[in-house]
Write a protein that binds this DNA or RNA. Structure first.
Ligand code: MN
Ligand code: MN
Ligand code: ZN
Ligand code: ZN
Lengths: 123, 123
DNA sequence: TAATCAAATGCAACTTAGTTGTGACTTAGA
DNA sequence: TCTAAGTCACAACTAAGTTGCATTTGATTA
């Protein structure tokens, strides 16, 4: 287990378990948001989906993990970082993290999801 | 039935039915996107949800209706218009249509969903 | 207007991502 | 090592949306 993850647990007063550490390990290595199935495939530990979702809920509460819904009725998870946008391609279903300048928007924006056709899939 | 809706059916070669006209009537009056339950409440005609979703799918194909997922695992529908963003407040769950200037984004953007805290709910 | 038939509808059964209850098992700390 | 609080696996559940199929509807033609 990496020091970074150990520190996250301590800082947020979250009890250490192998399940939790395994989830965060996967998210740490990922370069874009992943859904449950994708994380499951990459995890070194087998756990029930109830365990997975309860732990993710805990991470969310603590602000460690950020989640959003794509357009496939699935939650996508990533380690929290500065607010940035996600581009979801309707054709290849690839999710890309991007920086956008929104100009001024009333209210506090916490998540931005763009949907459309990515440049690879564009005619 | 309004002329506007009659014209939509003709232009898109969609068979007229009372169910279809009733759905579009509701969307035409709405000032923001609505989900199935919300549309059902407002509709003058009672129809099965299978009928509702099949008709919505037809409208989508024709480009009459645009749909997106909020963060509540529900689809939201509105009549198609120029691409604009939707702000979803995590506290009051209000969905507002807004115009944003994204700057330049690679690929073709078809839907923009912002999530956060609206100015009314903001401390 | 009446007959025709492809398309639309209602109903019931299904799918599936995510949630919840519960008894057994871990973990952190005394 | 002992203990209590927290976490886990398992199974049953929830709910938005989908699908199959027999019946009905509405645009077209006679
Ligand atoms: Mn991201
Ligand atoms: Mn809108
Ligand atoms: Zn693509
Ligand atoms: Zn609000």
């Amino acid at each position: 287990m990496s020091e970074q993850i150990k520190t996250l647990f301590e800082e947020h007063d979250i009890k250490f378990t192998t399940a939790r550490s395994s989830i965060l390990e996967v998210l740490k290595e990922a370069h874009h948001p992943l859904n449950y199935e994708q994380i499951k495939e990459k995890m070194s530990v087998v756990m029930d989906k109830a365990t997975f979702y309860r732990n993710i809920a805990k991470f969310e509460e603590s602000g460690i993990v950020h989640k959003f819904e794509a357009d496939d009725r699935k939650w996508y998870f990533e380690l929290s970082s500065t607010t940035h946008a996600h581009f979801i391609c309707e054709h290849c279903h690839q999710i890309t993290c991007i920086d956008v300048d929104l100009g001024k928007v009333e209210g506090e924006v916490k998540s931005i999801v763009l949907k459309g056709t990515c440049k690879e899939c564009h005619v």
